[in-house]
């Protein structure tokens, strides 16, 4: 394994860590916050899920062929797509098709560029690089994607009058929904921009701290962090752009008519 002198955590160590969860549960109980049971349940789920993923990844690392690596990424993306679908109430027409294709194109393009040009490791499917890097890119793009889709739906709903006024004055579907699209794009990118701006001052990012913990020199870890943030920003922007480009169209007919509300 690649642990350059990392201290192994035994199950005993983990049990001690779980003591802190018990403490937190106790505090919740004391305040009658009603979260005690959820907290316990969530911590159990976390433990089981992560242990399972750990073993799965171990296996994938050992096999070290492209198929399982790619499958893991696809399954991850599929799950998040499903979570997104259940969380977003106002769905644009053709939601899953638009979201799925945009995330797929946006993330694979950026991951490919990033892995081959920026990091430049070989082989391309090396799970040690591809899984965490693609995972971070997909996860962040998902957030951006749901913000874009949610905001676009809300904007189109709130701006019906504005949009139809513009259409009456001869605007195309694209012109009439320009403001809505612009606001949705902004909404998708703001969290990423804020994270970038606050990075290193307000919080130490997870990937960098992880690398440092596992023995990487901070100066190297910092470079990785900078590079991955650039990749994430690019992926979020491309994904959001693709969603909005297809998304605004889904609200209109080819005769530049705003479709009826479906909610």
């Amino acid at each position: 394994m690649h642990d350059q002198g990392v201290i192994h955590l035994t199950l005993m160590n983990l049990a001690l860590a779980y003591g802190l969860i018990l403490l937190a549960t106790g505090l919740a109980y004391l305040l009658r916050a009603g979260e005690a049971r959820q907290m316990l349940w969530a911590s159990v789920r976390m433990g089981l899920q992560l242990l399972a993923v750990g073993y799965l990844l171990d296996a994938v690392f050992t096999i070290n062929t492209p198929l399982p690596v790619v499958m893991i990424l696809v399954i991850m993306a599929g799950f998040s797509l499903q979570v997104m679908g259940s969380r977003i109430r106002l769905k644009m027409p053709g939601f899953y098709r638009i979201m799925g294709s945009s995330i797929f194109i946006g993330c694979s393009a950026v991951t490919f560029l990033f892995c081959s040009l920026v990091v430049g490791y070989a082989p391309w499917y090396d799970p040690r690089y591809l899984i965490p890097l693609a995972g971070m890119i997909i996860g962040n793009s998902m957030n951006g994607a749901s913000l874009a889709a949610e905001r676009l739906a809300a904007e189109i709903r709130e701006r019906r009058e504005e949009i139809e006024t513009a259409i009456c004055l001869g605007a195309t579907a694209r012109q009439s929904s320009e403001t809505a699209v612009r606001n949705a794009f902004r909404a998708a990118l703001i969290p990423t921009i804020n994270t970038m701006a606050a990075m290193g001052i307000v919080a130490l990012p997870g990937m960098m701290t992880g690398q440092i913990l596992s023995g990487t020199a901070p100066a190297v870890a910092v470079r990785y962090q900078i590079a991955i943030m650039c990749a994430i920003t690019g992926a979020v922007a491309i994904t959001a752009y693709l969603i909005l480009l297809q998304g605004y169209r889904s609200y209109f007919t080819s005769a530049h008519q705003l479709r009826e509300r479906q909610d």
Partner: peptide, 10 residues
Amino acid sequence: AMVLQKPFMF
């Protein structure tokens, strides 16, 4: 041309 019920001003 069409004028809608509520005047929307850009």
